[in-house]
Design a protein around this nucleic acid. Structure first.
Lengths: 239, 239
DNA sequence: TAGTGGTCTAGACCACATT
DNA sequence: ATGTGGTCTAGACCACTAC
């Protein structure tokens, strides 16, 4: 390994290893060479490789089994999903990811709120996605999503629209969500919610108003979620 | 350092160092001995001390300045509060921290849930704190808090009980909250909530069920918060 | 210049899982 | 028995900060 003294050796090793994941040299689930072999290949010590692997483990890019080996993490996209998908069934044994229903996509002139939050320029359009998401057969979330149309060309023609949007954003539009702001309230179901979620009017609804940003910190998505939390909840770990 | 082979040396070193922070041997902002000195004192290698310090840095218990030294982190009220106090006014310009009202503290035999979640031993008691918190004069949150009585002796005699409990936990009981799990639902106000928060029955209420852990990962607190989110909200940043 | 944290090495041994 | 990751050591040198 060339000694660029600008950055530590373990960072350089990590970058090379990440490259191999990115270019599919190593596929998800696959076991990679052991630490000694990698150390020899890169011309560094085993400790340096270990430091690189420790960092990658922290990023959940790999996982290790003592006595077995080091493996590429499955679907590095969906692991990012874990960070942003917060609605869980109360019964943790049922860990179904929600399915889409009643999808409706329109392109429209943006509202004041959309212009402001998504930082739209004059004349920019907005693509709105309406959908109901079901968990274990129960209509749990009614979502209204607003996206800048120019960032997501032809997204309205994708059929079927995948249940998880963030992997789609990344795979098809090279947009990776980095952070999100969730503002959460308890409200009463209005007639729209009531109809979409099949709940009585005035049922308590968990309202999550999200603004998502790309890793470059550009606002990407407004997502208003109306959740029937009768048998599910919003779960967050603070530290 | 005694070689308990049950756990790695670096975790034992870490525990001893954390103890010195807890018992005020080392105070916030103070510089601690360098890695070599600590290694000599504990009878381990410098690399082992470093691993312990790396872990503590991850937990933000210490910080380092290259070329200067290693310092105990300033445990500011605001830093702990920022992480764990999530209810904000909708109008961000008003950033009042809530005040206590109607405080009621009792010591009781724990419920099944309390025994299980707080990992109580046979005969352990539980201290329950009930209080209403107001934001800008509006009764916003009704809280029921459960604590292991043996960890918080005489907390029921503290008068007035401070608005923020976590700084008290640390200052008086050397217990620092490190993580918390929040489970959030929207429910209807029951008669108890209705009375405490002065809202009509069946008003939508944001119910936050929290289980907090110390930095040593021991469960410390169950906190059930019932929030009137008419003019406030729960705010979380995901990444 | 002296003292600190940051990186790196080469080698040893332990704990765990598979064969 | 073998091979893997996990821990630990002793020592070296680099990079940064203060004096």
């Amino acid at each position: 390994m060339k000694h660029i003294r600008q950055q530590p050796l373990y960072t350089q090793v990590k970058k090379e290893l990440m490259q191999r994941i990115a270019d599919k040299t190593w596929l998800p689930g696959q076991m990679i060479p052991n630490e000694t072999q990698l150390a020899e290949e890169f011309g560094v010590s085993q400790g340096t490789v270990r430091r690189a692997l420790d960092d990658m483990m922290e990023d959940r890019l790999i996982f290790r089994k003592q006595g077995v080996g080091t493996f590429i993490a499955e679907e590095t996209v969906s692991s990012a999903l874990k960070s942003f998908f917060k609605i869980k069934m109360d019964d943790q044994s049922k860990r179904n990811y929600p399915t889409n229903e009643n999808i409706n996509i329109t392109i429209a002139k943006p509202s004041e709120e959309e212009i402001s939050l998504l930082q739209l320029a004059h004349g920019d359009k907005v693509t709105r996605i309406f959908r109901v998401r079901s968990l274990e057969g129960i209509k749990s979330v009614y979502e209204k999503i607003s996206l800048p149309t120019n960032l997501f060309p032809s997204i309205e023609t994708i059929d079927p629209l995948p249940d998880a949007l963030y992997p789609l954003f990344q795979a098809k539009y090279q947009i990776r969500i980095g952070t999100a702001n969730d503002v959460i309230k308890a409200i009463s179901a209005d007639s729209e919610c009531s109809a979409e979620l099949h709940v009585p009017k005035s049922q308590p609804i968990l309202y999550v108003n999200r603004l998502s940003y790309s890793i470059q910190n550009r606002p990407i998505e407004i997502r208003k979620s109306y959740c029937n939390t009768t048998s599910s909840h919003y779960h967050i770990v603070l530290s």
